Simulated scan of single mutants.
Amino acid sequence: MKLEQILAPECTACDVEGGSKKRTLEQIADILAGFRPGIGASELFDSLITRERLGSTGFGKGIALPHCRLTNCDKPMAALLKLREPIEFDAMDNHPVDLIFALVVPEEATSEHLAILQLVAERFENASFRNRLRNAQSNHELFELAIAPLPN
């Protein structure tokens, strides 16, 4: 699977005022609910928060990968946010987060969910990839850099 199959330009935002973990998850829910008719922002936010309570999705290195399964989601979808200022996210390395890739998959998509998370995690392990995203100046540039082949 390629990122452009789950991440749309409309769900990519640069220079977002996050403020807090909760507020950022609310923004993600609003973005994805606005993009996909039939999915409510409050239901999506509740699912993201419920998953977050199981353990932080703060990946480390300034990255968070919040994710959840949703019953009325018919195919995987994602949002990518570059925050204006890093926020506390209870990350594994205790560093604040400034890049957030959120994933929502159908309830029954267990193996697909894990495969997408692995793909995204591998991309974010690449320091050049992270740096390119952090240097993006617009939503369009952030999207294009996110879906581009990984740098060496």
Rank of each mutant, 00 (worst) to 15 (best):
R23G: 00
N139V: 04
N139E: 15
A91I: 03
N131V: 07
N135P: 00
A148I: 05
K2G: 00
L81I: 03
F124G: 01
A121P: 00
L103F: 02
L3I: 14
L119K: 00
H140V: 09
L145M: 13
M92W: 13
D98V: 00
L70T: 02
A91W: 07
A146E: 07
A121Y: 12
D90P: 00
I63P: 03
A115H: 14
I147T: 12
L3K: 09
L83G: 06
D46Y: 10
E17F: 02
E108L: 03
C14I: 04
P76M: 13
R84K: 11
E10Q: 14
R51A: 09
K82L: 15
E17C: 04
D93F: 11
V120R: 01
E88Y: 12
V97N: 01
F35D: 15
Q137R: 15
D93Q: 04
R84Q: 13
F89I: 03
R130F: 09
L48W: 10
E107V: 01
S56N: 11
S111F: 10
E125N: 15
A146R: 04
N72F: 11
I116G: 02
N135G: 08
T50R: 12
L3F: 14
P149H: 04
L7I: 07
L7D: 08
K75Y: 11
D93N: 11
L65A: 10
A78W: 09
L142N: 06
F35M: 12
D46H: 14
M1Y: 14
G34Y: 06
L145T: 08
R23T: 05
F101I: 01
N152P: 10
E26R: 13
M77Q: 05
P9A: 11
E107F: 04
A109C: 07
